[in-house]
Amino acid sequence: MDPGSTCGRPGRLALVLATLLAAPASALEPYAIAGDAIPAALGGVSGDAARGRAVVLDRTRGNCLICHQVPEPGEPFQGTIGPALAGAGARLDVGQLRLRLVDASLLNPKTVMPPYFRTEGLRDVAPQFRGLPALNAQEIEDVVAYLASLRTP
């Protein structure tokens, strides 16, 4: 038997399985950056604009309204720190929108835009949220779909 094999070695196999099971369930889907964009959807999932709108408007999840204005006249207390999101889909393609959501600091290290899909190098994260992205891959893709649908300034 090969000395590196786990066959016939229950102790080593258990260690390998324990290591795999102990890996964080929140492991982020890998992505590749091309220029100023992430061209491929995170995790290969498709976004839904209606779900993305809900994330953008939800002040406990995306909390986008704290900094941005969206074309939602009935939504009070919209921010002005970041750019207005009306027309975002006409200004940026889906890959550019995706990178800005994933981690805008990759484009501008001094940005105040939070990284919604990064877990490392963050400050002041409550213990129950450490190691978790602010939005998961599906939520990122949903927000990208919503923002891409905003074509009119």
Rank of each mutant, 00 (worst) to 15 (best):
R59V: 11
P76H: 04
T19W: 03
Q96A: 14
A104G: 06
G44N: 02
T80S: 05
R123N: 15
Q69S: 08
I38K: 00
A145Y: 10
Q69L: 08
A88K: 05
T19N: 03
E72L: 02
R12V: 11
L17G: 03
N136C: 11
A148F: 04
A88G: 09
F117D: 09
V55Y: 04
E29S: 08
L65R: 06
L65C: 08
P39Y: 02
A37Q: 05
V70H: 08
Y31R: 01
R123W: 14
G89A: 06
A145D: 15
A54H: 05
R12C: 04
N136G: 15
A18M: 08
E29V: 01
G8C: 03
A40R: 00
L15Q: 03
L13A: 12
D48Y: 01
L13P: 03
R9W: 07
P153S: 14
E75F: 00
V144Y: 06
A84F: 12
L150V: 11
A54K: 04
Q78P: 00
M1L: 07
R12W: 13
L85D: 14
P73R: 12
T60N: 11
L135E: 15
A40C: 00
A90E: 15
S26H: 11
V70S: 09
R51C: 07
R61I: 12
R59H: 07
G87D: 15
H68P: 00
L17A: 05
A86N: 15
Y116G: 02
I33W: 01
V56H: 03
A104H: 14
C67Y: 07
G35Q: 06
R9D: 13
L65K: 00
L85P: 03
S105W: 14
G89W: 14
I33P: 01
A134I: 15
E120G: 00
N136F: 13
G82M: 12
V143H: 03
P76F: 04
A88I: 05
R9N: 10
M113S: 04
G11L: 02
D58K: 01
L132I: 05
C67A: 15
G47I: 14
R151F: 02
S46Q: 08
G62Y: 02
Y116E: 12
A41W: 07
P39Q: 05
A90G: 06
E29F: 01
G47V: 09
R59G: 03
L135Q: 10
R61S: 09
M113A: 13
P133R: 06
C7K: 07
S5C: 09
Q96S: 10
L107V: 15
R98F: 06
R59C: 04
Y116C: 02
E72H: 06
P109T: 00
P114Q: 13
G87Y: 11
G131L: 05
V70T: 15
L135T: 13
D48L: 00
F77D: 04
P114W: 12
S46E: 15
L99E: 14
C64V: 10
V125K: 01
G82K: 03
